[in-house]
Amino acid sequence: MPHLLTISPDFNTKYLSGWFVFNTWLQKSLGEAIHLELFDDFESCRNAITADKIDLIYANPYDASLLLRDKGFAPVAHPQSRPDEAIIAVNASSPVGRIEDFKPGMRVSATKDPEVNMICRIMLEPADIGPNDIQIVQRDNYVLVAKDLMKQEADAGFILAETFNDLSPMIRDQLKVILKSQIHVIHHMLLVGPKLAGKAGQLQQLLCAMGQDDKGRAILRDIGVNAWDPSSREDAEFMIDLMDTLIV
């Protein structure tokens, strides 16, 4: 029975084939059979975690508490200089110029990404807009969120900053960024489950050495990671504590 690797459903689809290549490299390097399974949404991913089906995960910080504190996962590594940031955007012609211009009752187009939605809700607090003051238009991906803004079918959109930067210039030109978070310390993390706990040290060494040869660098480039930095248990606990302060 191969081990199961999954990637948080908010990954950028342009890196899809890259993650399969990464998994091939991982299996060869670790000498373990690993199957990469991708979930369509956060709920399915959470259900798989809860059912103890996952052995390795590139996890959203929102799931870190469940994985580390309840499911016995151990932190291995996180991408270097790639914090998770979020953007609140509007149509380029919108009269909204700053957060305080938003009004309760606003229509927000958003995906189900719990981390991005949490950060953006926090950024609305200075306008006295709480979770119950917005009407969410749920979309499956950020391109659809951008389209809602372009068609003026939403007053604002919650978008992962990295994905916003990957939108085509034609789309970006029709949008206006009201605010981008600058939190810097929240990031995705690669974690191993209890069945692979004995391999955590070896995996950390392998990942952190990937940037030392051309092949490793090419694999990293194709998953959008510059390099891996080692993650300690305390690094992960700090991030969980920090996330705990942000949950609205």
């Binding site: 607090e125 200075p126 700090f238 920090l242 942000l246």
Partner: peptide
Amino acid sequence: VYATVVPNIRDGQIVGYTSVRRKPSRRK
């Protein structure tokens, strides 16, 4: 600021506190 403080609990013990402050609304 709007401050949130959480205890850092490790092995059942409070080993410190994390405080995160964010922008409050003018009304508050």
